[in-house]
Design a protein around this nucleic acid. Structure first.
Lengths: 225, 225
DNA sequence: CCAAAAGTGTTAGTGATACACCCATGT
DNA sequence: ACATGGGTGTATCACTAACACTTTTGG
């Protein structure tokens, strides 16, 4: 019996230069040669879908640590001109301090694009990206994923900026701090930031946060008995 | 190149006899012969994933109208002993008035099971079902999916019961009514229920509700340009 | 000393919760 | 007339949103 091909595509977000960015790679083969596309590739016969996504991501960025979560599966019969290809999309976040792009990627041309200055994308990748964006904004409201975009120690202003960049609107400083601190997810460190002006306290995640994060992840794929 | 097989599995919920039920079918072939499993089957080469789910569901229940939404894609290499099978799971709701089970299903033995009295399930279907249940409860909190389990016209008590059954806890009648009515999603009809006691007003969804529902659905697969 | 970012409290409004009795109908 | 489910209002509490000035540092 004829079978469809199965791939994973990854939408990897980060924040740099006060902008939300997504990683794209340039296609070197037809179809859509020389166009930009989401990183991804075929699922191996002996790896899980999560593993496939992780592997592809590492091949592109050389980075191992990141938040990764399955997003949605796209399977329109005509989405790839070469034939039936079903793709499981994954949503990933990384903090800009972690990323040393192109470590392993001499072969592949990969680049960060600001999400409000995107090139034309191959296949239905524009649609997939839009969906990922909605999901990112949506998840921000009820989870702590934004923390994934920050380094281990960060200032409250940095955290607030991350929210503002993703929601694309400004937030009230006092209310933001009140709320974040009341959640008990982060705690002061003894360190402070250095810079031109008044130093800011650095915060880090509490153990509670780690627990919550794991809870949210495990929530995605429930344990059975 | 070797390819995995791709299937869809459907978790169809309904409420009857004041219980949340799920539709299962009995397997007639190995592996797991004579065990109960989620309805589903292979994705055709020329249908979308949604179409495949709809088709399978109709083959099992003979019913066309139902809420259907993609849930999660499971792809552990060992989940099917016959070889690599990736399954895209779908989450479906139907109201018990609509269902005339086994219309088309003389060949397949299909049955409703109360979710707190389930048989052992084939493959990883227990895990998939658990995930669907979590999602159902979760979605109930911020969407109007519960309405899909009710007939077009319904009493507030029926609606409340649906919530109580799914959450498995009792709710305050006055608060429930206040909240539901304040949402403006339902409106009174001129009809009332008949029965042994005081007749209850029947309600139906407003246009607003339809809009919200469509919004939520389209939210799942965003439009691109 | 000044520019720039850090830090901090109060008030008003809105939504959530807890709670108990009367009403309309069929038998 | 009574049993059964239908229907209603108020008070408290918690959370959200709006809003402006002082503090600390480097240059």
């Amino acid at each position: 019996m004829e079978k469809p091909s199965v791939t994973v595509d990854i939408i990897l977000f980060t924040i740099t230069e006060e902008t939300l960015k997504v990683l794209l790679v340039k296609r070197r083969i037809e179809p859509f040669r020389n166009m930009w596309a989401l990183p991804g590739g075929f699922v191996g016969m002996n790896e899980t879908l999560d593993q496939a996504a992780k592997r592809e991501l590492q091949e592109e960025t050389g980075v191992k640590e990141h938040y990764l979560e399955q997003l949605y599966t796209f399977g329109e019969p005509e989405r790839d001109p070469r034939g039936r290809v079903i793709t499981i999309s994954y949503f990933a976040l990384i903090n800009s301090k972690n990323l040393k792009l192109k470590a392993d990627t001499d072969v592949i041309e990969a680049e960060w694009f600001s999400i409000d200055n995107l090139p034309e994308l191959a296949f239905d990748h524009k649609e997939i990206l839009n969906y990922a964006l909605e999901r990112l904004r949506y998840k921000l409201e009820y989870t702590t994923v934004a923390f994934q975009l920050l380094p281990k120690k960060f200032t409250l202003t940095e955290l607030q900026k991350a929210y503002e960049i993703i929601f694309n609107k400004s937030l009230d400083k006092r209310n933001f701090r009140k709320k974040i601190l009341s959640l008990g997810l982060i705690e002061e460190t003894k360190e402070t930031s250095k810079g031109a002006h008044r130093p800011a306290k650095l915060y880090s995640f509490t153990k509670q946060h780690k627990q919550l994060e794991n809870f949210i992840k495990s929530y995605s794929i429930s344990q059975s008995k």
